[in-house]
Amino acid sequence: MPKFTEDHEWLELDGDVVTVGITEHATVQLGDLVFVQLPDIGAKLAKGDGAAVVESVKAASDVFAPLTGEVVAVNEAIVADPAIVNTDPLKAGWFFKLKLADVGAFRDLMDEAAYKTFIGA
């Protein structure tokens, strides 16, 4: 089951690697994306570090590392075509995969019901 952050990211855990993307709520808030910058593979990120940048026509926003870990994969498809994030944020629009320093920290994140309450849905 996916988990969610207050920064509107979703995380899906497989072993000790999480796939990270942004929620549909986030894409609606951001509007049509025109540029995505992803972290380098091998980058070691602490929870809360700037991991990626997304830009709409109007503004640039940061995507933060939701947990501490090492970047092991990035989705180059959304760099080539940022619109994928708007059309399919939860699947094809994933951002990066993080090998977690502490898998236990995943369990403390919000589940879907808690996230829906958080955004007032």
Binding site: D7, H8, A26, Q29, A59
Partner: peptide
Amino acid sequence: MSGDDAKT
């Protein structure tokens, strides 16, 4: 996410 916040 951050940025683009309306000023109070």
